[in-house]
Design a protein around this nucleic acid. Structure first.
Lengths: 186, 186
DNA sequence: GTACAATTCTAACGAACGTTAAATTAAGAG
DNA sequence: CTCTTAATTTAACGTTCGTTAGAATTGTAC
């Protein structure tokens, strides 16, 4: 994320501020000060505060989610999920902040009903996607849906630890937890 | 939570607003309007906006956490944890909102560093507490700490689903997921 | 160099914010 | 009924907010 272009720098600063101070706690003036431009420049590139916020969530956050979801070359299921989570540790700072902001909207800390419904739609797609993904590897299908659900729940917590709480999760811990959920299943 | 007393009604409305609009998005005027009193009445009962916010987190949220943590009569571990989570579904509306607000502070959506460090301290106590709790029931201690960690992570997601996302989690689903993590362990 | 468009700025607008001073009303004691 | 204190209100303060009008600057094409 090289920041030469002013429009991009504004968005970058906005992500930072929205994350730290929330939507209402973020002021256009603070963003302008941070990127060292005058206040109306922000209105030159973005219609208003809300549009700036929405662009981050609608474009950058969902793009990030889709990028994540498309990394689907599985050979070993546990390796795959471990890598899936572990790699989050090494997202760029900007991507992590966008992710964090998205999760905040998802947990309805900020954002409006339109954004919320976009989130809901995304969320509904998660379980089926992972179920599909795991299907070919299931050996013991006794409590299939429950295991997939548990796995997804576990992934969710680990994502939040890395992205929202900004912790580093060691690969070994990730692998252990995923294995615990998936044993007796693969 | 009967609301006769004005001070209590103010706090109740504040929880509602802080939850929906965040700290900065909440205005004293809106709170006053909601409880049908004049604006300075809020300053009659609370020093300022920040003190009102802090009282909710420091008193009500932590009281709630401690109340939850003290429900420790175990006979069957899975029964216990299932009930522990399932009962969250039936918290009073007020308690749920306080819980939700607390989690938001915990995830640093609002609140200052003082509150954050209170949260950190609490968080550090969680793993040891559950480890202690599970100790007498462990049969297969091969990956003891990992299982406890996985369980706590799973509990966290379920708490967030109930309290933050305001979903109802059926007892059967809770039990299934806890059992999946704890099998081969008890 | 001149013309024109794309950037960027200074300065201000009205509205809403947190907070407070001071006046008013309600309640309880003697 | 009077005095005193508690509860509540009206009205305003200074500040900061999101936003915009309009001027100044910079870049580009001929």
């Amino acid at each position: 994320m090289v920041d030469n272009d002013l429009k991009e720098r504004i968005k970058k600063a906005a992500v930072e501020h929205f994350n730290t101070n929330g939507y209402h706690g973020t002021t256009i003036r603070n963003i302008a000060k941070e990127v060292n431009c005058s206040l109306p420049m922000i209105y030159y590139y973005y219609e208003n505060k809300k549009e700036l916020f929405d662009e981050i969530i609608k474009k950058d956050f969902f793009a990030l989610l889709k990028r994540q979801a498309s990394l689907l070359k599985i050979d070993n299921v546990i390796d795959f999920y471990t890598k899936f989570i572990y790699d989050l540790n090494f997202l760029s700072d900007y991507d992590k902040k966008v992710y964090r902001l998205g999760i905040k909207v998802y947990l309805s800390f900020d954002g409006d009903e339109e954004l919320m419904s976009l989130m809901d739609e995304w969320e509904k797609s998660i379980l089926p996607r992972h179920h599909q993904l795991l299907k070919p590897y299931i050996k013991n299908a006794a409590d299939e849906t429950a295991v997939v659900r548990t796995l997804v729940h576990l992934l969710e917590t680990m994502i939040q630890n890395i992205v929202v709480k900004n912790r580093h999760l060691p690969e070994a811990e990730i692998r252990e937890e995923i294995s615990i959920v998936l044993r007796n299943f693969l």
